[in-house]
Design a binder for these strands. Structure first.
Lengths: 353, 353
DNA sequence: TTGTAAGCGTTATCAT
DNA sequence: ATGATAACGCTTACAA
């Protein structure tokens, strides 16, 4: 009577390697080998094990496997939110990129709160993920420490939806996304090139969205350097379309000279477009409107909304690729600067007096 | 020299219970107890353990805990997709509902394929989830067997985004959602009550979406019972707005009598609205349009789109609640029939000759 | 090609 | 109130 034949007292009833082994007339390790390195088994044994697995309906216990091997095959992803947001697309890209790799996705939402991100990070660490994908390059000092700790012990960490020109050093994490300041600057240039000198900007309602703030900062800096003025306003909470309407009204009331308004996202811009119509301001002859994000609906508006197209799903796919490559090559993941296009459609153009 | 003092040879370097224990001058069990049932410890010991945990930066290894206890604290959720879809909202609701419960979300996307669902289900089973949340009540026979097996061994299973009047038996799983046939019938009645007798229906481009088919079936059955005619058409693939445009054009070309068209979702309906405008058909005087889903943009269209409001996020919250209650009360989860409102806005009304 | 022994880090059970 | 012991189901290292 070997160790392999004694009965269990705990556990939750699922068949184990042991059950398969006795059905096949081998020991557990042979079954384990069949699953891991089948080429090491004789054809005959492999055949019997295969049949036994099907006969008992064996499903491997991955927790036990992880405990023994140290590899969890879990990828942890933390994004601000999911509902009707760009991050849903990114997660879809991530799922697509992970598909067939044998890695599962553990997903958490931070609600744009860095404190909550840290809390979630601690919670998910208990699962020993094989990789971390977090949103943005800003974290609490403690979260930063946790992420660097992971990276230093060989667990890839990728920061998505952000990028910045900086000489990467040993301490820096891989960034996959785009440079929000540069995007803001590009938006400003779009207006400046059409001769606009009095600009408006409707900022995000989410104060914690530092990426939105960076786009605004880039916009302002570029516009002011060119001698243009920028009136800014944060959108109100709630329905962003409505908030965009209200914001445009207030902006024009503050400064009737404004001839071009950029918005922090396409929903705000759509509202602004509707309000411009209501105020009798021809678009783009009297007022240019520019969005950010390129929602499917944006190209359908009349006039179609000029906006910045962001590679939302691509970020997820690239992140998946980066962490998988990092895991298999045993080196830190690489950052990627992704391309954003400014799509000039009907809602923006030169001012016509 | 006790068993607690010998050094480890494997593992991935994170501090363990043992490390905390030696720092606190107790054994592993005491530390484990501190984390689980602190009230059983003396104040003094508890204090020392607490300090030791912080000192060594201990994070519990949840895989090991699950292996020993049999409770994984993972909730597995399978939805068709995420990007810009209603399911993203549902997952957000699920995340919100799970927040603070200590349960983590493992997320998978099936792409509306039942075969893929089965495959994913098998994969995630290896993690021994504490609960399964799947989309819809249709699965492959094998997947069905897996889900019933889980349910029978005390692991709650909830099917979301669906419901049906049926006498629940021991074999039936909890459904949290609404009755799609009934919704289809409600949509038909909305038109019938306004006197429409020649109806159109633009169906989903996703042939695998049986819930969309059920709404259509309910619509047709109710309309025909009332003596009305229904012309149906499946939307083309690709941009749904564009597909809605095309579909409306084809529908009106097929049968110029049609005075009311229902669409499988709001994006299709928005396209149909635009095309009606283009064809010179006044909405709703000559043509009524009805959507499904109530996207944020729908109420902003002119005329505002009449549509069915679905409790997308609520489904997720209720699912979270149901599985958590089921786990703590040790009984199968309860199904919930959720309410959908038909919002009659500007795009539908009686036909005016 | 197959097997044995010794863990992985935790918790359940029983003992003190 | 605290501890010793034996699992949980698997994999690595080494042996044959």
């Amino acid at each position: 009577m070997t160790a392999d034949t004694k009965r269990k007292r705990r556990g939750h009833g699922r068949p184990t390697l042991h059950d398969v082994a006795s059905a096949a007339g081998v020991t557990r390790i042979t079954v384990s080998r069949f699953l891991r390195t089948p080429e090491l088994l004789s054809r005959d044994t492999a055949q019997r094990v295969q049949e036994a697995i099907e006969a008992v309906g064996y499903v491997a216990n991955l927790q036990a496997g992880q405990l023994a091997s140290g590899h969890s095959r879990i990828v942890a992803a933390l994004v601000p939110n999911l509902g009707y947001s760009v991050f849903a697309e990114t997660i879809q890209g991530l799922i697509d990129g992970l598909r067939g790799s044998g890695y599962e996705l553990m997903l958490m939402a931070t609600g744009y709160s860095l404190a909550r991100e840290e809390e979630q990070l601690r919670a998910v660490m208990g699962w020993s993920p094989s990789a971390y994908i977090v949103t943005g390059r800003r974290h609490t000092p403690a979260a930063m420490k946790l992420l660097h700790g992971a990276q230093n012990s060989g667990v890839p960490v990728v920061e998505i939806w952000d990028h910045q020109k900086a000489t990467p050093n040993a301490e820096s994490l891989a960034l996959i996304g785009f440079d929000h300041r540069a995007i803001g600057a590009m938006m400003a240039r779009h207006f400046l090139q059409s001769g606009h000198r009095s600009l408006g900007y409707v900022g995000s309602a989410v104060q914690e969205d530092y990426r939105a703030q960076e786009r605004l900062a880039g916009f302002q800096a570029t516009a002011r350097r060119a001698g243009a003025t920028v009136q800014t306003l944060s959108a109100g909470e709630g329905d962003p379309f409505e908030a965009g309407r209200v914001a445009l009204g207030r902006l024009m009331a503050q400064c009737a000279d404004i001839s071009a308004v950029a918005c922090s996202n396409d929903l705000l811009a759509s509202g602004a477009l509707a309000q411009a119509h209501e105020l009798g301001l021809p678009v783009p002859a009297r007022l240019s409107v520019l969005g950010f994000g390129d929602l499917p609906i944006s190209r359908q508006l009349r006039p179609a909304l000029s906006t910045v197209h962001t590679p939302t799903a691509e970020i997820g796919r690239q992140a998946a690729e980066a962490v998988l490559a990092s895991i298999s090559h045993q080196r830190p993941p690489n950052g990627v600067l992704l391309d954003c296009q400014l799509l000039s459609r009907g809602s923006s153009g030169p001012r016509i007096e």
